Computed example of a mutant assay.
Amino acid sequence: MKRNWDLIRNILCALEEDRFVEYVRSGGLSDKETQKFTDLKSGRIDTESLEEAKKNRRNEIWLHVELLIDCGVIQNTQFDREGVNNNYRLSMQGHDFLEDLRNQEVWDKIKNQAFKSGAKLTWTFITAAAEQIVQRLASI
């Protein structure tokens, strides 16, 4: 599995907004992604393929949740891989991290800075870049 920073950002937002259970149940698929399983002519939904995509994405979500737990951004009171109960919460570090990533402009600048410099999006790069970008925006 490749680490997906956009997915990480979405997971953190869902936790903060108390919609994590719904996010997991939906497989984290956006409306645009869900529309890919709808035949434009008939309007029929390929439910089998859609459910398979949700299942695959849920697996990816849980692998990323485990990474976030490992680094202390998420804490859990009881591991529930079915996503039926929201036993997860952001740690103080998680709230701080999300505060930097929540702003779409800041997030886009972080990704652009990594792309331009040839750096990889890593925890260290993102936190350092976010700090610089937020300081620059604050001084304007």
Rank of each mutant, 00 (worst) to 15 (best):
K2F: 11
K2L: 14
R3I: 01
N4R: 08
W5F: 15
L7Y: 11
I8Q: 09
I11H: 15
I11M: 14
L12C: 14
L15A: 12
E16P: 15
E16L: 00
E17L: 04
E17D: 03
E17N: 04
F20C: 00
V21W: 07
V21S: 11
V21H: 06
G27S: 05
G28D: 04
G28L: 03
S30Q: 06
S30K: 10
D31Y: 08
T34A: 10
T34D: 06
T34Q: 07
Q35F: 04
K36N: 05
T38N: 07
T38V: 03
D39V: 02
D39E: 07
L40Q: 06
S42Y: 06
G43Q: 06
R44V: 04
R44A: 01
D46A: 12
E51A: 02
E51S: 03
A53P: 14
A53W: 13
A53T: 14
K54R: 15
R57T: 14
N59I: 02
E60A: 07
L63H: 12
L63E: 09
V65R: 15
E66C: 07
L67Q: 13
G72W: 08
G72N: 12
V73D: 09
V73W: 13
V73I: 15
Q75T: 11
N76A: 10
Q78G: 07
F79P: 15
G83D: 13
V84R: 15
N85E: 05
N85F: 10
N86L: 03
N86K: 06
Q93I: 02
Q93W: 04
H95Y: 09
D96R: 06
L98M: 02
D100Q: 04
D100P: 00
L101M: 13
R102S: 00
N103M: 05
Q104F: 08
Q104G: 00
Q104V: 01
Q104K: 12
E105K: 14
V106P: 00
V106W: 10
V106Y: 08
V106F: 06
D108T: 08
K111G: 01
K111F: 00
K111W: 05
N112H: 08
N112R: 09
Q113W: 08
A114G: 01
K116C: 01
S117H: 12
S117F: 09
G118T: 04
G118I: 04
G118S: 06
K120Y: 09
L121E: 02
T122S: 12
T124N: 11
F125S: 10
T127S: 09
A128M: 15
A128R: 14
A129T: 10
A129I: 10
A130C: 06
E131V: 08
Q132K: 14
R136Q: 13
R136V: 10
L137F: 04
A138W: 01
A138H: 07
S139D: 05
I140L: 11
